[in-house]
Design a protein around this nucleic acid. Structure first.
Lengths: 204, 204
DNA sequence: AACACCATAAACCGATTCGGTCAAAGGCAT
DNA sequence: ATGCCTTTGACCGAATCGGTTTATGGTGTT
């Protein structure tokens, strides 16, 4: 692994992104080292030179992405923001900023949830365990829900936002690159739209 | 293929569902006949006995699902419903009713959009061409958008509904089966929530 | 009981791809 | 020219691929 870390960061990221994409769209078993190498623009031999084995690479990515995600939230999520939608806006923007560097990171982190291969399951569970107490920190428990109109079912709003969250993070492979800033802006507008229409008038 | 059609419908559907799941989650190339056979509870030999080749099976599914989807819309979508949200509710319920019989059909139909393997690309494009003029029929062009509050950006609402649509159709592999009726109900409540808060008061 | 028929699965086929290794070829500093 | 380190294409045995063949057991007919 020292071999990998002594690479220029740009090249490291290219390899990471190739691997994230392959693993998240094909799963651990069906993603092949050749796929990853081809997408990263290196030879297959280098994948093993850098990481030793496919298993090693996968487990490294689990840890790397997990830590990165949690550190980013820790560093950037202002816990003083108690407004429901503003809090979601913040976490969304953190996710999008990560996707600028690592486009497949969100779908990879989702995919590890459903990965069942014995070779990596243990490592995944270890990471998820670390993430569990963490998730309580970004949860919306502490947020202020008193601003909602009285007749609005907040659990339903949560469910809707979950669906939106699932949906927006799916990058449509529409040829060119994704405009993450536009995506962030759209998402913010979307949340404002909901806020403006779900809150009592005095809180808008 | 006559061999396949002379099977009991239940068994046919089990095979179709196994194949839809394999193809939609792994793509044409990486989905293997053994995977499909295993999930369908038959031997690999039977897959070829019924369909001749993997290519044949895939193309059959493209046609079968495409036709089924379009026929279902044609039969069940009441074009007299001009209300924006009610129209979406109808199409959503049609999708969900299809997912009861074929859980992976929606994700399969999405996946063929991004399939690029030369062996099946042609057949996919033929199907998509048939679907093109069709899509105009279910489009929301004719729906009534005058009921929205004046300050609401309808394009933004559309974008949000797209995300919700992407999100809700992802079945979370949470061990047990999915409660489609509950899903349908949640989706309807969700749309009502939006309707009640996005429309001018006189239209609620 | 003998037969034909056919669905089915296991064993098998050559070809490909798998994860992983290795030797040889380059670049680069000394 | 020497030594070192990255990089690659060729290579390895093993696994898996799409697809076929063979053997089996059930069914219906006579």
């Amino acid at each position: 692994m020292e071999k990998f870390f002594s690479l220029p960061v740009e090249k490291q990221n290219k390899i990471i992104n190739a691997a994230l994409k392959a693993f998240s769209s094909n799963g651990y078993k069906k993603a092949s080292a050749s796929d990853i190498a081809k997408n990263a623009g290196i030879s297959k031999a280098m994948v093993f030179h850098y990481f030793g084995s496919k298993q090693n690479l996968y487990l490294y990515l689990v840890e790397f992405c997990g830590e990165l995600f949690m550190n980013e939230i820790d560093a950037k999520l202002d816990k003083n923001v108690s407004d429901f939608f503003e809090r979601i806006k913040l976490t969304t923007n953190i996710e999008i900023s990560l996707m600028k560097r690592y486009p497949a990171i969100v779908s990879f982190l989702k995919s590890i949830f459903f990965e069942n291969d014995a070779d990596v399951k243990e490592g995944i569970n270890a990471m998820l365990a670390k993430g569990e107490n963490f998730r309580n920190r970004i949860a919306l428990d502490g947020t202020d829900t008193s601003k909602f109109k009285d007749n609005i079912d907040i659990k339903l709003v949560m469910k809707m936002l979950t669906w939106i969250g699932e949906g927006y993070s799916i990058q449509l492979p529409g040829e060119g690159e994704i405009d993450y800033d536009a995506l962030s802006k759209e998402m913010a507008e979307c949340l404002d739209l909901l806020k403006n229409n779900f809150y009592k008038e005095e809180f808008i």
